[in-house]
Design a protein around this nucleic acid. Structure first.
Lengths: 344, 344
DNA sequence: CCCGGCTGTTTAATCGATTAACTGGAGGTT
DNA sequence: AACCTCCAGTTAATCGATTAAACAGCCGGG
């Protein structure tokens, strides 16, 4: 791999490097005669010239690289889509992304920030794998964009899923099918999930909208994994039939998976005897379940795109209010009208 | 954010930039008096000097960045662990990784290679999300490392999972529990998976080892997703009892998930009536199933580490033979001895 | 008293581009 | 003839580091 410099192109074309630079970058192109341009381009081709971005970056003071700091974004399944979204925009704009995974370690975050600063990246995105309120690391530039998290103090561009609207969409789906006894299988409070609170708000809002009195017994909490969902669902399904829910809105798809298991164990069939709606739209769970799960999708890809667009200045963001990205409902086959005796 | 240059440090310390450079890099440090060193360091601290890696890279001809090109690595759940492994090594070595997701698009790959070359990355890793034989893109440097794939022509450092040994481990687990009628729920051939062939080899090898005559009826193929596994398992479980398998080794965890469902539908309990072993160790599937699934883990993290270690020259690789990374078995609760009437 | 060697630091070249300022000559004007 | 305007480039400074080579003092030896 020989090093070909701009000077080599210039020598071969019999011009100065300034001319080569102008031609190849299309700057001031009116000032260079077409013949010369042609010669330069041929020379560049002939010697196999590839511009050195390091040198260019030094001179122009922009690197066309953006740093993406994340707590374990890469190691968690769904959040990869955020990366894909960010990456796509970056590519469209001729930028590269440097990914740093800090595993939530303050020291690693410090280091990452240092390294990215040293590389003089053009922008920084700070991403979380869950919707969270984060104490951003000291030294994070003012104009860094927060992805799937918000700063407690505000004042920073940020994008998060519209969990409240998502919760509403999920419950509306069930109400529309005719359900009135709708449980919410929530995550335990100790996980301190922003999403939990907001989805619950959405749940209550739609019940109110539909004139349904919320039954506290139907709001249960468990660890947000399959076994948690299973146990919670089991308890609900063992209620006397008139107090039993005909539908469950689950905090996430894994809990919904547990609800399926519980239903099966109770000899109930989904969706005939029990309708279920999940949240997250995790491919490996929602789509693979039997029957496929109706769920609310987390707009990771879109949030990734949004963050990168803001980072690159393609789009303006209001630093005072986090941008709420819609969570579309994904209809599959786990919702149907309630059994006849419960119908309205 | 003011720009502090080395010259500013030099001015404040009353020395030349050469001295500052030597002190801060610890080069020739015996030649600089302790007092001066002290003064330089204080000055650097006082003005908040942060070295500019772009300038350094230009001069030293190394960027301390490595490019990681992948087909959809980020968008697929398990492969994120490869990234984590690579990232960890990079960080330990003071390197940064530039991630490019090409979605298997040849044009995107070309572009990515161009961009990374332009950035003068110190090394390149080419990663796949599945174990595959790939036609590497033209222009991929000789010393690029292949991750989870091999080139048909060979001649390149590469690391892949040891699928054959993994298959052996899985089947040994079942044989050790006393099973003799062990099915292999394989992926369909049209998916053309290297893994499929190798795991099957491992399966046959262990049967031979145990003196079990392989029954062709127990080697079935289906789409490697839950529904495929469910149907395949259903067919096997509807065989007359003496020809029915007492255990299933599934090509992946999703198929195993399907096998669980089929067993449930047939009124069989896992592992009492049917033992199941999966492959991949996908957290969201294997660990969440009821009972938790015994499976073979794909060593993504370790492969990621290996690739980065080779890329950074920390470890030598034989370009003629791909490195085989062991796939450890993960024991959970889906294997038990066969029902009494089948015992040995 | 001059020379050589050592110490501690500086000078200046260099990495490979970008770009503001300049130039030499052709052509046009008055 | 003197002067101006374009044209088609070129010159040289610059980005911010690294590093080989040079250099200024000082000490000791002959």
């Amino acid at each position: 791999m020989v090093r070909v410099r701009m000077a080599d192109v210039a020598a071969r074309a019999g011009v100065s490097t300034a001319t080569v630079s102008m031609v190849l970058n299309g700057v001031n192109s009116t000032r260079i005669s077409p013949q010369t341009q042609q010669r330069v381009r041929e020379a560049a081709e002939a010697v196999g010239y590839k511009p050195n971005s390091v040198a260019r970056s030094l001179r122009t003071q922009q690197t066309r690289m953006v740093g993406l700091i994340s707590d374990t974004i890469a190691t968690t399944p769904f959040a990869g889509r955020m990366l894909a979204g960010a990456n796509d925009v970056a590519r469209e704009q001729g930028h590269l992304v440097i990914l740093v995974d800090t595993e939530r370690d303050a020291v690693a975050e410090r280091q990452a920030l240092h390294a990215l600063n040293g590389q003089r990246v053009d922008a920084i995105i700070y991403a979380c794998m869950w919707h969270r309120v984060v104490e951003v690391p000291e030294g994070l530039p003012e104009d860094a964009v927060l992805l799937d998290c918000v700063a407690p103090a505000g004042g920073r561009a940020a994008v998060v899923p519209d969990e409240r609207a998502g919760g509403m969409a999920a419950v509306r789906e069930l109400v529309a099918a005719g359900h009135r006894r709708i449980a919410f299988l929530d995550a335990e409070e100790r996980f301190d999930l922003v999403a939990s609170r907001l989805r619950f708000e959405g749940y209550l809002e739609v019940l109110a909208e539909a004139g349904i009195e919320p039954d506290p017994a139907l709001h249960v909490r468990a660890e947000p994994v399959a076994s948690g969902g299973r146990e919670a669902a089991r308890r609900l399904l063992s209620l006397p039939v008139e107090r039993r829910p005909t539908a469950m809105f689950c905090f996430n798809d894994r809990m919904a998976m547990g609800a399926y298991t519980a239903a099966l164990h109770c000899g109930l069939s989904v969706p005939r005897d029990l309708s279920v709606v999940g949240y997250d739209d995790q491919q490996l769970v929602a789509a693979e379940l039997d029957p496929p799960l109706t769920t609310v999708a987390l707009p990771h890809y879109e949030m990734g795109r949004w963050a990168m667009e803001v980072a690159l200045g393609l789009r303006q963001a209001d630093p005072e209010v986090p941008h709420l990205m819609p969570c579309p409902i994904v209809r599959r086959a786990s919702v149907s009208p309630p059994p006849a005796q419960f119908g309205d």
